[in-house]
Design a protein around this nucleic acid. Structure first.
Lengths: 168, 168
DNA sequence: TTGTCTGCAAACACTTTGCACTTTT
DNA sequence: AAAAGTGCAAAGTGTTTGCAGACAA
């Protein structure tokens, strides 16, 4: 009877693919849905979680459709996708890193200083405190970045052993 | 303001100035205590809380001692001060920002994306949540870095005017 | 003296832009 | 056909490096 995960209400659709959302965004702004932009959205949507412009460009050039991708267009399109709310951009060590943003709640990271693994987590409590602190400084928070440094369980329980394999 | 780093060694009270700590650091590494490095440490120690290389260079050039300061030396010395534990470095929007590290308790920042000002704050609540989250992942937190992005009061109330405030 | 440090200019890595040509609409 | 997009090359940022002369130790 009831269809799970169907949130359609009249003309309000919810299950848009990133490509569709991007096309809408472009059209709404009088921008054009070009082959390059389509190739880039499709590629980005179907791949890795975190990437930078260079990686994307390299990947694109390995595919037949994106073989002729140019660096400026990649940058331009990534910026548009950020505007469209499809991607999140963050700058780490001077280079821009992008990650998908499907409207999920913001997540943060636990960073193990031994094995350098990133563990994702999210906390509503955290956001509440963030907003409370911001408010007390008459500051309007739009986002945040939190990295908790420490040592993960694996690395703690195996400290008896000598070195670890991973990248040094 | 020059803040000394105080701590006890047995019954002997030790109070080293940043300049002294830096000199020790340099000597211990066979590096030299040059006029430029001294000028830079003194300047950095006595001024603003947050700054970037360019600001520092500009400021230095307004003083008689630092008039001939070169960009490479500023960068090199800042890196050494970070190594020496005198400064903290963080990268915001692709630019390195430095702040003093006097061993004060951890604090975090509100970062205004308009005027790029950093506002410090600290929250015990935040640390509690941090530790709780870490614990739930069997992770031992040793520290964290949080930057809350948003817009400060000044920039919100003056958005009609095209105003580029100096960053601090 | 000896070896480090400095300043200059040039190199760098990443990103953006000017412009003539191509493509979507 | 009109307007926006693309790729190329070149220009920008912010930061780092090679090197000959300058200077602590």
């Amino acid at each position: 009877m009831t269809v799970a995960h169907d949130f359609s209400l009249g003309s309000v659709e919810v299950a848009l693919t990133p490509a569709q959302r991007f096309a809408e965004f472009l059209q709404a702004r009088g921008k054009r849905v070009t082959r390059q932009r389509q190739v880039i959205v499709d590629h980005v949507s179907s791949r890795h979680e975190h990437f930078d412009a260079d990686q994307l460009l390299d990947d694109l050039r390995k595919t037949p459709e994106g073989a002729g991708a140019s660096r400026p267009t990649v940058y331009r399109t990534l910026a548009e996708m950020v505007d469209a709310g499809l991607l999140h951009k963050m700058v780490l060590d001077g280079r821009a890193v992008y990650e998908h943003d499907y409207g999920y709640p913001q997540h943060d990271h636990l960073y193990c200083s031994v094995c350098q693994r990133l563990i994702e987590f999210s906390s509503d409590e955290l956001v509440k405190i963030r907003d409370a602190v911001a408010a007390s400084h008459q500051f309007r928070a739009t986002g945040h970045k939190l990295i908790v440094t420490g040592i993960c369980l694996d690395c703690r329980t195996s400290k008896a052993k000598s070195r670890h394999q991973d990248r040094v």
